[in-house]
Design a protein around this nucleic acid. Structure first.
Length: 281
DNA sequence: CGGTCTCCCTGACTGC
DNA sequence: TGCAGTCAGGGAGACC
C-alpha cells in the first residue's frame, strides 16, 4: 500500500526518465477512475512532484496529470507494452535523447485514481484540495497537531489517516510513528509533549523509509519493479501477537473506525482527555 | 460542519 | 481438494 515514502521513491525514479517527453498516445481501462489518462495526450511533461500520496505530473498548457496509486497501484516505465490484465492505463512518451517508451499504471484492485486538471485546481479531488501539511516540511508542527487534534473528538489514529492533519500517512507509518512516540492510537487528545514526540517520530520513520526505498508489505513495487526495504525495519505494523521490542509485552490488534491498528498496551497507554485549556492556564 | 458508515475491488488466507 | 467466508484499506460520498 503506497504511502508517502513509496510515492516519493517512485517520483524520484520516474522524474529523470519522463521529464521533457511528450505524451503522444494513451489508453485507459473503461472506468471513471482511469479514463482521464487520455486527456494528457499531446502535452509535454515538465516536472514530477508529490503532495501526500498524490503524484503530480506538471504538463504544458497549464494542466496537471494527477495519479493516486490507491492500494495496489504501480507506475513503471518500459520500452514496450506487454500484455497485462491489470494494466489500467498507459501513456506512450516521445523519444528525447533515448527512445520512445511507455509509462504504465497497473492496479489490481482498482482503488487508484487518475485525473487531468487545470494546474492547481483540485476542486474535483477534495482530499488533495484539503490536504494537510507535508510531514517533512516546517509547516508540520507540534502546535498544529495539538490544535487540530484537540479541537476535534475523533481518534488520533483516525486523524493521522485522514490526510488533513498531515499529508501522506497511511496505516503502516501511523502505527509505526505512534509506537515510536509511545502514544495510544485511540487517544482523542494530545499534550504538548506528545505532539512534539509524534512530529519527531513521524518524520524519522518517513525519512528512514524513504532511505530504504519504501515498505513492501504485500504489493508495492517501485518504478523499477523492485520491492522496498523498510519492511525489515518495522517495529509495530504487522507484528500483532509478537513481543514489543521495547518492553516485551504482546502487541495488540484492534479496529478503530474500520481500520486495523496495532499497538503495545503497556508502553502506549491510553491517556485521558485533559480538561479544557481555559481551565488549565 | 463534524462524525460515522458504506462501498469500491480482488488476491491471499482460513476453516470446514 | 474445494468452496465459502473473511481480510486488507485509501478515498469518495451519503447520511445524521
Amino acid at each position: 500500500m503506497p504511502e508517502l515514502p513509496e510515492v516519493e521513491t517512485i517520483r524520484r525514479q520516474l522524474s529523470p526518465q519522463v521529464v521533457g517527453r511528450e505524451i503522444i498516445a494513451s489508453s485507459a481501462f473503461e472506468s471513471d477512475r482511469f479514463l482521464e489518462a487520455v486527456l494528457a495526450i499531446g502535452a509535454h511533461i515538465e516536472s514530477v512532484s508529490r503532495r501526500g500520496k498524490y503524484l503530480i505530473f506538471s504538463l504544458s498548457a497549464g494542466q496537471e496529470l494527477i495519479v493516486h496509486l490507491g492500494m495496489t497501484g504501480a507506475l513503471q516505465v518500459a520500452p514496450t507494452l506487454t500484455e497485462d490484465p491489470y494494466c489500467r492505463a498507459w501513456w506512450k512518451l516521445s523519444a528525447t535523447s533515448g527512445q520512445q517508451m511507455f509509462l504504465t499504471f497497473r492496479d489490481i484492485r482498482r482503488f487508484g485514481k487518475i485525473a487531468v486538471v487545470a494546474a492547481d485546481d483540485y476542486s474535483r479531488l477534495p482530499t488533495l484540495r484539503d490536504l494537510g501539511p507535508e510531514p517533512l516540511s516546517e509547516d508540520f508542527t507540534p502546535d498544529w497537531v495539538r490544535e487540530f487534534v484537540n479541537r476535534r473528538s475523533r481518534f488520533l489514529k483516525t486523524h493521522l489517516l485522514g490526510q488533513r492533519l498531515v499529508a501522506g500517512v497511511g496505516n503502516i507509518y501511523a502505527d509505526e510513528a505512534l509506537w515510536r512516540a509511545a502514544i495510544n492510537p485511540s487517544d482523542r487528545s494530545i499534550s504538548r509533549r506528545h505532539a512534539t514526540l509524534l512530529v519527531e517520530h513521524l518524520r524519522e520513520v518517513l525519512a528512514s523509509s524513504i532511505e530504504h526505498g519504501g515498505t513492501t508489505f504485500r504489493d508495492y513495487v517501485n518504478a523499477n519493479g523492485a520491492r522496498g526495504g523498510h519492511q525489515h525495519h518495522l517495529d509495530c505494523y504487522g507484528r500483532a501477537g509478537e513481543p514489543c521490542r521495547r518492553c516485551g509485552t504482546t502487541l495488540t490488534k484492534g479496529v478503530l473506525d474500520a481500520r486495523t491498528s496495532t499497538w503495545c498496551p503497556a508502553c502506549q497507554p491510553r491517556r485521558r482527555r485533559p480538561a479544557p485549556s481555559s481551565a488549565r492556564t
